[in-house]
Amino acid sequence: MLRKGHIFKWYMGVFLVFLYAPAILLPVFAFNDSSIVSFPLKGFTTKWFAVLQTTEALHVAVRNSLMIAVTTALFSTLFGVLAARASTRFAFPARRSIMGFIMLPMVLPEIIIGVSLLVVIIQMGFELSLWSIILGHILICTPFCIAILSSAFMNLDQSLEEASFDLGQTRWNTFWLVIMPLVMPGIVASLLIAFTISLDEFIIAFFLAGTEPTLPVYIWGQLRFPQKLPSLMALGTILLVLSVSLLLVADYFRRRGIRKTGIESKGGFL
C-alpha cells in the first residue's frame, strides 16, 4: 500500500501534467515541420516563426494590442493607486461597499461587461474603436491592480509618513520621498499584470472591437483556417515566453518591495 505522502506526490504529478499539457504542446507544435497540428511529429523547423514576420495583418493587430495594453496598464494602475491608498490609509463612509463595488468586475462574467459596454456605446451613438476596448480593459484590470497595490500600501508603516511630516517635510514631498519609493515595486508589478491581462483578453475585445482587431481577436479569426494553425502555435509560444518573463519581472519587483518594507514574504501572486 502506498503511504499518504506518496499519494499526494502522485496526485501532484498528474495534476501538473494536466495543468501544463497545453503549455508544453504549444512550443512542440510551433517547431514541428508539418502544416497539420497533430501527432506524429514530423521534424524541427523555425519556418512558422518566419511566416509571422511577413503577416501584415498580424503586425497591425500586435500594434493595436500593445497600444491598448500600455494605455490600460497606465490608467488601471493610476486608478488602483488611488483606490488602494484610500482604502488602506483612510476610514471613509461606506468604505467596504465602495471597495466591493470597484472589485466587482473580478467576479463578473466578462460577457456581461462586454455586453453592457456595447449597449452603452451603441445607445450613446459612439463608434466602436480601440478606445472602447481600453475602457473595458481598465474596468477589469483595476481590481487586479488594487489587489496588488493594497498589499504594497498595507505593508507601509504609517509612522513612516508621520516621521517624515514630523521632521518638517510637507505632505506632497512626503508622498514623493517616502511613500512612492516604498510602493514603487508594487506599482511596477501592477503595471505589468494589467499589461499582461489586457494583452491576452479576448471576450471583451471581441464584443467591442470595431474594424480594428486586437491580437486575440486576430487569433480567433485565424483559428478557422487549418493552414494558419502552425504559425499561430509559433505566435502562442512567443506570447507565452513574453508573459512569463513579464510575470517574473513583476514578481521580482513585488518581492523587492516586500523586502524593502521589511516584511516577511508570504505566498505569491494575487
Binding site: D157, S159, E162, A163, V178, L182, T261, G262
Partner: peptide, 8 residues
C-alpha cells in the same frame, strides 16, 4: 516613534 519609523 514606537516602531522607530526608520525609512527603510
Amino acid at each position: 516613534f514606537q516602531s522607530y519609523a526608520i525609512f527603510p
